[in-house]
Amino acid sequence: MDFFGDTMKVLGHSLDYAAAKNNTISANVANVDTPNYKAKDVTFQSMLDDAFESEMKAKRTDPRHLPFDDEGNTYKIVERKHTAYNHNGNNVDIDKEMAELGKNQIYYQSLIDRINGKFRSLENVLKGGN
């Protein structure tokens, strides 16, 4: 029985994204002085796809076509190329990374708060609404 519909699945994917973003930012900060290190970003590829999923179902007409299911990561880690902020070829901007870390922490906490709210609602129902 699915109590929350797809909500917990979406929140779980969002938490995976936030964790990957946090790990990527941590790696960038750890390599701020590493020569020729190129900073990495996490992109959330399927946000638009998820928003229109219920209205725009894709049909696979050939088994060689890519599937349109929800399996796998909804994000991708990409390297920031063709820039160098430091004399050693490194392109990590520590101020940008720390700002991104703060935004990601707020995002992660809001997801946790939403999950907690879902479980509090379930707990309230199980206790009889008291």
Score class of each variant (00 low, 15 high):
D33I: 00
I112R: 04
M98A: 09
G128L: 00
D50K: 13
N88T: 08
N116P: 00
E55G: 13
A20M: 11
N73I: 00
M47G: 06
V29F: 12
G72L: 02
A27T: 01
L111Y: 08
L48E: 13
L11Y: 14
N88Y: 13
T74V: 04
A30L: 02
A18R: 03
T43L: 08
H87S: 14
D41H: 09
N88Q: 08
A51G: 03
D2W: 03
D62H: 15
I94N: 03
D50W: 14
N22P: 00
F119W: 09
D6K: 09
G72N: 03
A27M: 04
H87V: 03
Y85H: 12
F68R: 08
Y17M: 09
V78S: 10
L48F: 15
L111C: 11
M1F: 15
K59Y: 14
T83L: 11
S110F: 08
T74Q: 10
G102S: 12
G128P: 09
N116V: 00
A99Y: 07
D6H: 13
M8N: 08
H65C: 07
Y107R: 04
I115T: 10
S46A: 12
E55S: 14
L66M: 14
R120M: 08
N22R: 07
I112P: 07
L15V: 13
T7K: 12
S110Y: 06
G89Y: 12
P35E: 02
D93V: 10
K127H: 14
A58M: 07
T61V: 10
S110K: 05
D41L: 06
N130V: 07
T74C: 07
V125R: 05
M98K: 10
A39S: 11
N88G: 13
E53G: 08
V78A: 09
